[in-house]
């Protein structure tokens, strides 16, 4: 399993990395463009990501726009459900819809910050992933 973590804040990145390394191979990115580059390269290498953990508030290109670009790229590559990458949107804002519009069509799950380790594990496992060796 390959996981792409997109988070500009260092402590969140560290915590997610530590938790999700138990599930698969992790790539860390700090902004949306870096994430798109990694996503494209993974497909070119024939070893795409299974899960993208995307912070919502990112500098330059926010999480919503980055996810929209990822979905556009998948469409242009002819990738349809259920083969699209799973998206876990991470946010410190609980009322996303009120401020940013509906993101449910773009993400498979939403994780609220600050999060607990157990919450991350629960959501990831509910999305169908299991720890390595289990």
């Amino acid at each position: 399993m390959r996981i792409l973590i997109v988070e500009d804040e260092q402590t969140n990145r560290m915590i997610l990395d530590r938790i999700l390394t138990s599930y698969g191979e992790v790539t860390l990115c700090e902004d949306g463009q870096e994430a798109l580059d990694a996503f494209t390269k993974a497909h070119s290498d024939g070893y795409p990501y299974d899960l993208v953990c995307m912070d919502f508030m990112l500098p330059n290109m926010d999480g919503r726009d980055t996810v929209a670009r990822i979905r556009d790229m998948e469409s242009s590559m002819g990738i349809a459900m259920p083969n699209k990458v799973k998206i876990l949107m991470i946010t410190g804002l609980s009322s996303l819809e009120s401020e940013y519009g509906d993101i449910s069509s773009l993400s498979d799950a939403v994780l609220q910050k600050p999060f607990k380790k157990s919450e991350v594990e629960e959501i990831v496992e509910r999305m169908g992933f299991a720890k390595k060796g289990s």
């Binding site: 260092q10 402590t11 530590r18 600050p114």
Partner: peptide
């Protein structure tokens, strides 16, 4: 510690990283 399920090593790393950053 509760957030990190009692993982003291990770907690220490988070505190150090926050202070350094």
């Amino acid at each position: 510690l509760e957030r990190l399920s009692g993982d003291a090593e990770l907690a220490r790393s988070v505190v150090e990283t926050f202070i350094a950053g």
